[in-house]
C-alpha cells in the first residue's frame, strides 16, 4: 500500500507501524463519574467495519508523525490522510 503522507507525499506502508482505530485519540477524562466504564469502552470496544475505517499509523521509519488514515478495509483504497495531531486538536484534545 502507498500512504499519501500529508507532509512527505506517497510513502510505502512498510515504513509505518499500524496501531488501530483512530478512536484511540478520544481518551476519556479520568475524573469523569463513570471513568472506569468509559475507559473500558475506549480500550476494548472497537468497530470492525468492512469498508471505511479511520485508523492510526505511525511513520516509524520516517518522520515519526502519527497519521490518521481513512482506509477502505475491503479494497485498501486510502481516502484521506491527516496528521493525527491536527485530528486530536480538532477533537478537543488541546489542554
Amino acid at each position: 500500500m502507498i500512504i499519501n503522507h500529508p507532509i512527505l507525499g506517497p510513502r510505502d506502508f512498510q515504513e509505518f507501524t499500524y496501531l488501530g482505530d483512530a478512536s484511540l485519540i478520544d481518551r476519556p477524562d479520568w475524573q469523569a463519574d463513570n471513568a472506569a466504564d468509559q475507559f473500558h469502552d475506549y480500550l476494548y470496544l472497537r468497530d470492525n467495519p468492512a469498508g471505511e475505517h479511520r485508523e492510526l499509523w505511525f511513520h516509524e521509519q520516517g518522520d515519526r508523525s502519527w497519521l490518521v488514515v481513512t482506509r477502505n478495509t475491503v479494497t485498501h483504497e486510502i481516502l484521506n490522510v491527516e496528521l493525527a495531531r491536527d485530528v486530536a486538536r480538532a477533537r478537543g484534545r488541546s489542554k
Partner: peptide, 13 residues
C-alpha cells in the same frame, strides 16, 4: 512509539 502517540494524539498541545 507510545510516548510519541501520547505527545501527538493524546496531549497535542
Amino acid at each position: 512509539r507510545n510516548m510519541e502517540f501520547a505527545r501527538q494524539c493524546l496531549f497535542p498541545d
